[in-house]
Simulated scan of single mutants.
Amino acid sequence: MHTSPSPAVQALFLFLSENNEGLQNAALVLGGGKALNRVQHLLDHLGAARQLTRRARLDLVALHELFTLKYVGDPLRLETALFAEIDPMDPMVEEICLLTDRLEDHMRAIDAASDLPVFDFDIAA
């Protein structure tokens, strides 16, 4: 029997659906073509599967890490070079920040509604 996603997971799916263009643009700007492909796969997968699979959880964590600039500063990472090209005054910066905050809010809501953490955010972070 197939169970429907929890309200927190449904809210995440709605957020991803409503913001899919912005999420793709942000992924491309911050992580290049590989990050864009990963986000497109995530959006396609969630649209078809309508459940939070292990792969989707991993992709969401990777997206969150990209948006929170986890790898910026490592000179060997593409993210560092791409970030250096962004004009801090570009309106896209504010949109990326808002998307990041909302994505994290949805991920934390899923964790709060679950018996075991799904995304397991580090409390110290």
Rank of each mutant, 00 (worst) to 15 (best):
Arg38His: 06
Ala48Gly: 08
Thr53Asn: 06
Leu28Gly: 08
Glu95Leu: 15
Asp122Val: 01
Pro7Phe: 05
Asn20Gly: 00
Asp115Pro: 05
Leu42Asp: 02
Ala124Met: 04
Leu116Pro: 00
Glu94Pro: 02
Asp120Phe: 03
Ala56Val: 03
Ser6Cys: 06
Glu104Trp: 04
Gln40Gly: 07
Leu116Ile: 02
Glu21Ala: 08
Gln40Asp: 15
Phe119Ala: 11
Leu46Trp: 02
Ser4His: 13
Leu103Ile: 01
Glu65His: 08
Arg50Pro: 00
Glu79Met: 01
Ser114Asn: 12
Tyr71Phe: 14
Phe67Gln: 03
Lys34Pro: 00
Leu82Tyr: 06
Thr3Glu: 12
Pro7Met: 10
Asp87Leu: 04
Leu28Glu: 14
Val61Arg: 07
Gly31His: 13
Asp87Arg: 12
Asp101Met: 12
Glu18Ser: 09
Asp115Ser: 05
Cys97Leu: 10
Leu28Arg: 13
Ile86Pro: 00
Gly31Ile: 09
Asp90Leu: 07
Ala27Asp: 10
Leu12Tyr: 04
Leu82His: 04
Val29Gly: 10
Leu63Ser: 10
Pro7Ser: 12
Leu82Gly: 07
Leu99Tyr: 01
Pro7Ala: 11
Leu30Phe: 14
Leu99Glu: 04
Asp122Leu: 02
Ser6Gly: 07
Pro7Val: 08
Leu16Cys: 11
Ser17Glu: 13
Glu94Phe: 14
Val93Arg: 11
Ala109Arg: 02
Ala62Asn: 13
Asp59Val: 05
Arg77Asn: 11
Asn25Gly: 13
Ala81Ile: 15
Asp115Gln: 06
Met107Thr: 05
Ala8Gln: 15
Gln51Tyr: 15
Leu12Thr: 01
Leu14Ser: 11
Glu18Thr: 12
Ala112Leu: 15
Val72Met: 10
Gly22Asn: 09
Val29His: 05
Leu46Val: 13
Arg57Phe: 02
Leu82Ala: 03
Ile96Gln: 12
Leu60Ile: 00
Arg102Lys: 08
Gly31Thr: 14
Thr80Asn: 03
Ala84Leu: 03
Ala81Lys: 15
His2Val: 09
Val29Tyr: 09
Met92Cys: 06
Ser4Cys: 11
Asp120Gly: 12
Glu79Ile: 00
Ala112Gln: 15
Arg50Trp: 07
Cys97Val: 06
Leu28Thr: 04
Asn20Arg: 14
Arg77Ser: 09
Asp111Val: 03
Val61His: 00
Phe121Thr: 02
Val61Lys: 11
Thr80Gln: 04
Phe121Val: 01
Val93Cys: 09
Leu28Asp: 06
Gln40Lys: 14
Val9Asp: 01
Asp122Pro: 01
Gly22Ser: 08
Ile86Met: 06
Asp120Glu: 06
Thr80Tyr: 05
Thr80Leu: 09
Asp120Asn: 15
Met1Trp: 12
Ala84Asp: 11
Val39Leu: 09
Ile86Lys: 11
Arg50Leu: 05
Met89Ile: 01
Asp105Glu: 15
Arg38Ile: 02
Ala56Ser: 15
Leu36Cys: 11
Leu78Gln: 10
Met1Phe: 07
Arg77Lys: 15
Ser4Gln: 15
Gly73Ile: 05
Val118Lys: 07
Ala8Thr: 10
Asp90Phe: 03
Leu43His: 03
Ala35His: 09
Gly32Lys: 02
Asn25Asp: 11
Phe119Val: 05
Ser4Arg: 02
Val61Trp: 03
Ser17Thr: 13
Thr80Glu: 02
Asp115Ile: 04
Thr53Lys: 08
Thr53Arg: 03
Ala27Val: 01
Ser17Tyr: 06
Glu79Cys: 04
